[in-house]
Amino acid sequence: MMDWLQVTRGDAPLVVSFPHTGTDIPPDIEDRLVSPWLARKDADWWIEKLYDFAPGLGATLVRTAVSRTVIDVNRDPSGASLYPGQATTELCPTTTFDGEPLYKPGHEPDAVEIARRRRTWFDPYHAALAAELDRLRAVHPRVVLYEAHSIRSRIPRLFEGELPNFNIGTNSGASCDPLLAEAVEAACEASDFSVVLNGRFKGGWTTRHYGRPEEGVHAVQMELACRGYMDDPDTPPAPGAWPTPWDPERALFMRHALHRVLDACLDFAGA
């Protein structure tokens, strides 16, 4: 595979996708940005570490090392908003979640560049994801696609107040069998963390695009509030203070809960 696209193959009927853990930005793009730190602020920090037990369960992992500022592989490639009427970011974001401009004036990507970035990174990522789903679907009656995400607990521009710890998205029930959604929700509720199903985050483009339960592919997105596994300030972070360091002990209880969640996905797929 290409060095920015990492695929770890397993044989269990579970694919875990990591679309936003990357921080790589090509120099020709980074030179046009207001701040390299700002461009990496909204990464899903430490998620690949949080789920590093998944290969031991037989799961397949698909991850891009490229920053979502370059291109967001979980956005509709047509440019259509996933949440019409609500604040969000684009296929090639021009602002942070907090609304700060990412590019120096006049240096934002135009339509030609967006199309180039899509061909270079978006299309290969989804070709790999689709290939792994097809490979597993050929030998399993049901396969679960699990989208692993995280976000700061408080971002007033995107949502009011504080997010629950577990934000499960199934495109309002369209992307998976209700039994899978119930099993994932129950696994979360067995912990001391707060849970919501199809709240502010109902699943991104990947969940909506691949979730075809009638064809045996069941997709669910898990958006974690960062405070469940890392220090997460109540106020917008500043350079040098974010991300807070990875701490395995701080993340231990969340890891236990997520292990139960992936076990529930495997139980459903193998049932």
Rank of each mutant, 00 (worst) to 15 (best):
D110I: 11
P248M: 10
G203V: 04
E108Y: 04
E162C: 10
V261S: 01
D234W: 12
P141Q: 13
A269N: 06
A111F: 10
I29E: 07
L14S: 02
D31M: 13
T88K: 09
A115C: 09
A59L: 03
A12R: 02
S153L: 03
T8G: 11
P109G: 12
R32E: 09
V73M: 10
D177A: 13
P36S: 15
H218T: 03
E100F: 05
R119Y: 08
A183D: 06
G79W: 14
L14P: 00
G79P: 13
E108A: 15
P178D: 06
T96R: 02
H140M: 07
L163F: 03
T69M: 04
E147F: 04
S175T: 12
P105F: 07
D3I: 11
C176A: 15
G99I: 06
E100G: 06
R157Y: 08
A80K: 13
V143D: 00
W37Q: 05
C226F: 07
R154C: 12
G216T: 08
T21P: 00
A43D: 08
L266Q: 10
H256D: 15
D232G: 06
V184F: 09
G10I: 02
L14C: 05
R75T: 04
G199D: 12
D72P: 12
A181S: 15
D44R: 10
C92L: 06
A225C: 10
